[in-house]
């Protein structure tokens, strides 16, 4: 197990290096026009351009720039933001807790709601409750975060005056963003849990348990759930990427100062050092999350053995 974990960590190093390399060359060679000129929105004097170019090191030979870029990235140093003049690391560090809270809250809600809904809908298969949950899941799965967020803000904030729709503060401020981010994952989780439980209910060992005269509840909790958990972990692993994408949108709607708003502002302001930094950081988060999911597999399913 330990060797497996170490190997997985080692595999992710070349992956991060590739992300960095593509980022480096993308922002220097694929930009239509002169990157320095674009960062200054094409309205700067030659002297200003020369200064920024020197500050960013763009005036040095490419191999040297590349070497420094990789070396600094390894120390989590992406230079200074062109816009705010803070270090990129500082910008990311002060905004990461917001994104973490949002994502963790959403995941918690999604797992609880999705699991219960899926279980109810499978155990009461082909009843009105099942139909209602399946229909709700299709709807919840179809509505994208940016539509859900705006409409929820309109209903709960503007019409009903129940919850705040912008900014950060106490617990109340997190309810809408977390719920909006959770709905999509909760819906797909409910569908998956339902399918997994129905699949396990048809297995021979469940029929045997029933034939032995075990009570329905015991069968569900002892025989069905542990086996239905495996596809659920797969889904959670797959949904981390969607969760991060959704966080970008949700932060923007509810004016949360997280990584998503940072990255978005950097994109529209053409603040290249910040975009490079956030891109790398998102990659690190996603790769780490996938690693955790892979380890969780091994813990949940004793049939999986890693050499």
């Amino acid at each position: 197990m330990l060797t497996y974990i170490i190997r997985r960590i080692l595999i992710s190093i070349p992956l991060l290096w590739s992300v960095l390399t593509l980022t480096f060359f993308g922002f220097r060679y694929l930009v239509p026009g002169d990157p320095v000129d674009i960062m200054l929105f094409g309205r700067a004097t030659a002297a200003d351009k020369a200064r920024l170019s020197h500050e960013l090191g763009y005036d040095r030979p490419i191999p040297l720039q590349y070497w420094d870029f990789i070396k600094n990235a390894a120390h989590l140093d992406f230079g200074d933001s062109v816009y705010s003049h803070n270090t990129v690391f500082h910008e990311i560090a002060i905004r990461f807790p917001t994104t973490l809270k949002l994502a963790a809250g959403a995941l918690l809600i999604a797992v609880i709601v999705g699991f219960i809904a899926g279980m109810v809908s499978a155990v009461f298969n082909r009843t009105p409750a099942d139909t209602a949950i399946t229909t709700a899941a299709v709807l919840g799965f179809s509505i994208p975060e940016f539509v859900l967020g705006t409409v929820a803000g309109l209903i709960f904030g503007v019409q009903l005056h129940l919850l705040p729709v912008a900014g950060e503060g106490g617990f109340k401020f997190w309810i809408l963003p977390c719920c909006c981010l959770a709905l999509g994952i909760a819906s797909s989780l409910a569908r998956l849990v339902r399918a997994a439980i129905l699949d396990v209910l048809g297995q021979d060992y469940v029929r045997t348990a029933r034939a032995k005269g075990l009570r329905r509840l015991i069968i569900v909790f002892q025989h069905v759930l542990p086996n239905a958990l495996i596809p659920v972990v797969t889904l959670l692993g797959l949904s981390v990427a969607g969760l991060l994408s959704g966080a970008v949108v949700i932060e923007n709607i509810f004016a949360l100062q997280g990584l998503g708003t940072l990255a978005l502002h950097a994109v529209s302001q053409r603040d290249f050092p910040v975009v490079e930094g956030t891109t790398f950081f998102f990659a690190v988060v996603l790769i780490t999350a996938n690693l955790v999911v892979d380890i969780a597999y091994a813990l949940i399913d004793p049939r999986i053995r890693y050499s």
Partner: peptide
């Protein structure tokens, strides 16, 4: 795949 889809698109 090392980046969330929307983040990759934003970087591009």
């Amino acid at each position: 795949l090392a980046l969330p889809g929307l983040v990759l698109a934003m970087s591009i």
